[in-house]
């Protein structure tokens, strides 16, 4: 493999600037989460707090039982949802990528149409709760996000259509391989880059999803982590703004730092597992390169 490379120092320089731009607010986020609340209120967020405090985290730690339970729920729905979602998407995308498939245009349109039109929240809710009885079940956290709409399918289809040589598929078919075998043995290994990408997107979607929990879940034991954090946040905010000041609730949580601590807690695990994902991604590439 010989290609002329770009000037590496220049490329790295550009990326160092980009990385700084992306990391800088993130550092601010972490530092704010360990700043004393009154320091935030009087001086705003800063990179080097005048007063450090772990009050925000200790406030969150009071909810640790609920928090760990929610992490469990989130990990479970993320793993199952990503795997099943990816499988269904690839299975639907592959036939659509085959130019010889009868009714291909019509079926593609059927998939595409879901991107633009939806029935809205109330009808969707009624179907899942009244017809499928999914209120307060894990299913309600997994099913609605599997494909969501046809977006990922169209992406995968485009990749299949453009990166997998038709000749390979045709010759395999002539050699007597079944369509399932072709899909499993040839198409999937060749398309690891897109599968890893879509897998990552699905993971992010499941990890960050709070909306399905908001509408389908009322049982606290089924709250996902984003759901739990989101609800805590809104509750604190409501208490503060509405001045209800119940005698029993003399606890006045450190709003600003808690908000930031919640953001950290919500995305940190995702950032930690990201390198593993990438590892898989890169491995997939080398396999793809060998076969190609």
């Amino acid at each position: 493999m010989k290609t002329n490379d770009m000037n590496q120092p220049v490329v790295h320089a550009i990326f160092i600037i980009l990385v700084a731009l992306c990391l800088f607010p993130f550092v601010l986020l972490i530092m704010s989460s360990i700043t004393e609340e009154s320091a935030i209120v009087s001086n705003g967020y800063s990179f080097w707090p005048s007063e450090f405090s772990l009050e925000a985290y200790s406030y969150l730690w009071m909810q640790k039982a609920a928090m760990f339970n929610s992490y469990g729920i989130t990990v479970l729905i993320t793993v199952v949802g990503t795997f099943v979602g990816l499988l269904i998407s690839a299975l639907l995308a592959y036939p659509l990528s085959r130019r010889d498939l009868p009714l291909r245009g019509m079926l593609s349109f059927l998939v595409f149409f879901t991107l633009l039109f939806n029935g809205g929240l109330v009808p969707t809710y009624l179907i899942y709760t009244e017809v499928f009885q999914m209120k307060n079940t894990l299913m309600s956290l997994i099913i609605p996000g599997l494909l969501t709409n046809g977006f990922f399918i169209l992406l995968i289809r485009t990749f299949f259509a453009n990166s997998i040589p038709v000749q390979i598929i045709e010759s395999a078919y002539i050699d007597g391989a079944s369509e399932f075998k072709i899909f499993y043995r040839i198409v999937l290994p060749l398309s690891l880059p897109i599968l890893a990408t879509i897998g990552l997107m699905l993971t992010i979607n499941y990890w960050n999803d709070w909306f399905n929990g908001l509408i389908y879940i009322t049982e606290p034991r089924l709250f996902s982590i984003q759901n739990l954090l989101n609800r805590m946040l809104v509750n604190i905010q409501f208490l503060q703004q509405n001045n209800l000041g119940n005698q029993q609730m003399a606890v006045n949580p450190p709003m600003n730092s808690v908000r930031m601590a919640m953001a950290v807690i919500g995305i940190l695990p995702l950032i930690l597992i990201y390198p593993f994902f990438q590892n898989y991604f890169v491995k997939g590439l080398t396999i793809g390169a060998v076969k190609g």
Partner: peptide
């Protein structure tokens, strides 16, 4: 000739019908 390919699409299509097409009656709202 293509029945295997159509079979592959069944789960996805069924999903889209349930998740996206059935609720579309809501357009009347």
């Amino acid at each position: 000739r293509y029945r295997a390919l159509f079979l592959m699409m069944v789960p996805g299509i069924v999903y889209l019908v349930i998740n996206n097409y059935l609720p579309m009656f809501g357009v009347v709202i």
